[in-house]
Design a protein around this nucleic acid. Structure first.
Lengths: 226, 226
DNA sequence: TCACATTTCTGAACGTGTTCAAAAATGTGC
DNA sequence: GCACATTTTTGAACACGTTCAGAAATGTGA
C-alpha cells in the first residue's frame, strides 16, 4: 500500500464523521469531541489533521465546490443559450449546498470570502485566494464558450468572472435566506438567469456596453494591489 | 433621579468598556471577563444586561449607524448632485466604521445581515429586520430629494433602497478588505459614486430604464414572503 | 535485531462564552 | 419601620475549542 495510507484513513474518518454531524446537527452543536469520538480517535489527534474546527468546514466547502463542478459541467450542452447555462449552474450550486445550509455563515467566513485581515501565510507567491475561485470561473468560461448564440465579443472575456460574481451574490443571499427550503433563493436564481442573459445581449448597444465596461473597470480597480 | 438610573449607569459602563476593548484589541481578544472587570461588575452581571457577547457587538453597531446618520445628514446640502451625495454618505460610513474594522465580520453576522435562520422572536408583527435598515434608507431618501439635478422620475422612488444596497455591498467589501487602512474600500467608494450617478442619469433612456426596472422587480421578488 | 528518528496519537489542562441558584440591593404598600 | 416582591449582582460551574508535553506506533539504516 501507499505510504501513509493509515494516516489517510484516519483523516478520511474524521472528515466523514464531521460532514455527517455538520449536516445533521449544524455547526454549533457539532463538537470537536463528538467528531473525534465518532472517528474513533482522541481530540488532540483531530487537531493533528486539522488546525481548527473551521479548517474542517473549509475542507467540506472545498469538496462541495468539487461536487458542484462535477455536477454542472456535463449539463453545459453545446447550443443552449447563456441564460440556460447560468440557471443550471446556479441551481446545481444550491442543490449541492442545500444539506449544509446551517453551515452557510461558516462557509462565508472560512472559505468563500477573501482571507480575513491579520492572517497570512507567505508560502508561494501564488497565495491562497477564495477557495476554488479559479476553478469556478473555469466553469463559467466553459458555459460562455458553449453558449449559442455567442455573447458579444465586447464582454466575452470578462463574462466568466462577472458570472462568478453573480454566483457569489446568490450564494450570499442563500446563506441568509431564512425562507423554508430556501425557496426565495431558488426563485432568485430563476429570475436572475434570464435577466443576466438579457443584459448580455443588450451589451451590444454602446450605452449598455459602456456601463458594463465601467463596472469591470471598477472591479479591477478594487482588486488592484495598491 | 429617574427610576433605574443606577441600572442604566451599569449598562453604560459595560457598553463603554466593551467598545474600548473591541476597538483596541478586536473581537477575539476581548473577553466577557475583561469587559465585566473593566466595568467593575461580575461576569454574570454582564449577562444580565446583554444576552451574549454578540449582543454587545450589535449594540455597538447600532450606535455606529446612528453616528453615521448624524455625520452624513448635515452634509447633504441642497444643490449638490447625486454622485456627490452618495460619495459623502459612503465615505462617512467608512470613517465611522474604520476603528472597528476587526469587528467587521461580527457586524455582518449579528447586525448588518438578515437574521440567521433558526432564531426567532415572535413579538410584534413588525419583526426586527437588519439593524437600522429603515433609518439608513431614510438618509438616502434625503440625499435623493436634495440632489440637483433631480434623478429621473422613473427611478426616483426605488433609488433610496437601491443606493442602500450599494452601501451594503461596499460595506461587505470593506469587511473583507485586507489592504492597509482599507484603501481599496476608499477607492471603491471614489469610483462607485460617480458611476452610479451616471447610471441614474442614463436611466432616462428606455433600454437602461427597463434594465433597472427588471432589477428592482428581481429584488422585490426575492424579498417577497412566499 | 537493535538503535534511533519520524509520524501518529493521547488525555489532561487552559481560557473561553454562557448558565444558574442563590445572595444582595432596591423598591412598594402599609 | 417592617414584610414582601422585584431588580440587580455574584461567583461557581459547565461545555466548548484549542494547546501541549509526552507516549505509542511506525519507519529507517546497520
Amino acid at each position: 500500500m501507499a505510504a501513509g495510507s493509515k494516516s489517510e484513513a484516519t483523516r478520511r474518518r474524521l472528515v466523514e464523521a464531521a460532514t455527517e454531524q455538520f449536516r445533521d446537527q449544524g455547526f454549533d452543536r457539532t463538537t470537536m469531541r463528538g467528531i473525534a469520538a465518532a472517528a474513533g480517535v482522541s481530540v488532540g489527534n483531530a487537531y493533528y489533521y486539522f488546525s481548527s474546527k473551521d479548517a474542517i468546514v473549509a475542507e467540506l466547502y472545498r469538496s462541495l465546490q468539487d461536487q458542484h463542478r462535477s455536477a454542472a459541467l456535463p449539463q453545459l450542452r453545446e447550443g443552449h443559450n447563456l441564460g440556460e447555462h447560468l440557471r443550471v449552474i446556479l441551481q446545481t450550486n444550491l442543490d449541492v449546498l442545500a444539506p449544509y445550509h446551517s453551515l452557510g455563515h461558516q462557509f462565508l467566513k472560512t472559505a468563500a470570502l477573501p482571507v480575513p485581515p491579520g492572517t497570512r501565510k507567505s508560502s508561494t507567491p501564488a497565495d491562497a485566494e477564495q477557495v476554488g475561485r479559479g476553478k469556478s470561473i473555469a466553469v463559467y468560461r466553459q458555459a460562455v464558450q458553449a453558449a449559442r448564440p455567442q455573447p458579444p465579443l465586447a464582454v466575452r472575456d470578462d463574462l466568466p468572472e462577472l458570472l462568478w460574481l453573480v454566483q457569489m451574490g446568490v450564494t450570499l443571499f442563500w446563506v441568509y435566506d431564512s425562507s423554508p427550503g430556501q425557496v426565495r433563493s431558488r426563485r432568485l436564481v430563476t429570475n436572475t438567469a434570464p435577466l443576466v442573459a438579457k443584459l448580455v445581449i443588450l451589451s451590444r448597444l454602446p450605452v449598455v456596453r459602456n456601463i458594463v465596461e465601467d463596472v469591470v473597470k471598477l472591479l479591477r480597480g478594487a482588486r488592484a494591489d495598491d
